[in-house]
Design a protein around this nucleic acid. Structure first.
Lengths: 188, 188
DNA sequence: GGCCTAAGGGGACTATAGTCCGTTTATGTG
DNA sequence: CACATAAACGGACTATAGTCCCCTTAGGCC
């Protein structure tokens, strides 16, 4: 028994998972996130639709899997990286650093994040990483603004960081001004 | 030529429009907004699918049409009603009154608003009423917080009022605390 | 009233997400 | 190595949003 595989995954399953991720990444790059159907992903990966859905649940699950590595980097940086994003700085400063880093991440993968958040109603709030961001922002807010109702306020901050909202801001004001506006928000 | 019908609508078209709205309102009330297909609406109204889509564009268009009357009431109250919602009060006070009134409207029709905002990607920002709310909030912010970047900030306030976000807040904290949190937000 | 035309009507058709279930296969066990 | 079994596979099937285009009809005009 290998210690780094707590949940055993059958060899063919692992192979197919990699084939699907590679095919999906390539298709999305070539044709854009919209304009690629799940059938097309399955065909390009050389697997059946059943396999695709069994493994990733739905279209947003596929997007989440493709974003996974980038998300983990950001989460690592928050948990154990250098200040001000990581531990060591004050709540307000860490919060500002998080928003900055999250916007970088978001603008680099806007379409994919959008797909992960909007594929099904309420999908955004069920993704594991959303709960991570929410928890982090809540803790930073408690430190930065003692006495505020941090839980709901953290949701509001994240609402301004939703792919849907940021997409609209970028379309209306351009990337630079949109970024500045979001930055201002988190500090206010 | 009737003066209150600037765009002439044929008699059969008007009849069918009313039949569809009545059938949709009934079905949504009986079975919930999810769980009613456009086919079902067309069948219940006794019209073809083509007619349904020709008239309302898509599912979010149907939701918008059903919400139209309530929205217009709120818009009237803002434009010509008594203060503090209508003209006469200061920007901060009017903004708070708007948020309060909007949350009332939203919680009363959460599923329908949600459908109008999420039926297609970016739908929310294309609806006429969104632009009305945005314009109003922007003007109130300019008055309440001179020098702020009011346009993007107004979008952020409205992001916290999206059906998706409010649905999540209500699910997590209950209606009373969610309402209080949103109220606090707009003032902060 | 009869005609003409543009708007309206309707249902077959397409595209796509997601489900179901009979078949295949990887892998542990004797 | 043969076998058992649980997991994985895959493609036919369903549900539903939205499109297309041919047919019907309202209503202006003589």
């Amino acid at each position: 028994m290998l210690l780094d595989e707590p949940q055993k995954e059958r060899a063919d399953a692992a192979r197919n998972r990699l084939k699907v991720l590679a095919a999906a990444a390539r298709l999305f790059r070539e044709k854009g996130v919209d304009g690629v159907s799940m059938d097309a992903v399955a065909a390009a990966a050389g697997v059946g639709k059943g396999t695709l859905f069994r493994r990733f649940g739905d279209k947003s699950g596929l997007a989440v899997a493709l974003l996974d590595e980038r998300e983990r980097e950001l989460q690592e940086a928050i948990l154990t990286g250098p200040a001000p994003l990581g531990p060591g700085a004050g709540g307000a400063e860490r919060l500002a650093a998080f928003v900055e880093a999250y916007v970088d991440y978001l603008l680099g993968h806007l379409d994919l994040v959008r797909m992960s958040e909007t594929a099904s109603p309420g999908a955004r709030y069920r993704i594991g990483s959303y709960r991570f961001w929410h928890r982090h922002v809540t803790i930073m807010l408690v430190e930065a603004r003692p006495g505020c109702d941090a839980g709901p306020l953290a949701h509001a901050v994240l609402a301004a960081l939703s792919a849907e909202h940021v997409t609209a801001l970028v379309a209306e004001y351009g990337e630079a001004r949109a970024r500045q506006a979001i930055r201002t928000l988190a500090l206010g």
